[in-house]
Amino acid sequence: MEVGVERRENAKVIAVKGRIDHLNASVFHEQLIPHLQHCRSDGDSIVLDLTGLDYISSAGLRIFMIAAKQARAQGGRIAVAQMQALVQEIFEISHFHLVYEIFTTTDEAVAALGRQAETAGA
């Protein structure tokens, strides 16, 4: 599992590659924590670019839940984009499509979170 970060406008695009399962979910969480701390109403939005994510287990999805809860508690915005078909099905079966805004492309996600930030006056 690899994580790469790129700034796009007022969002951090975090690209996740490989597999997230019970063996490496905690590592993924540790890599996400510094970025989550800045995902606030007056800070960065986060777009999780899942183009390269091949598989995610329940342990990985739990980290996605923690991230969503923390971002929302801080008034921040977080979304996922460019999921592979298999990962999108796992999201839907586990009902995580009800937790996350899902965008077809990273560009759409960055633009949408930017508009939400403007609406919120951030």
Binding site: S58, L61, S94
Partner: peptide
């Protein structure tokens, strides 16, 4: 529960999900 419920609003309610059963 669904996994999303089991790790959020129903965490610590003592039950599991179909996802974890498969895994």
């Amino acid at each position: 529960y669904s996994l999303a419920d089991a790790v959020s609003v129903k965490e610590d309610w003592g039950h599991s999900s179909n996802i974890i059963g498969v895994e």
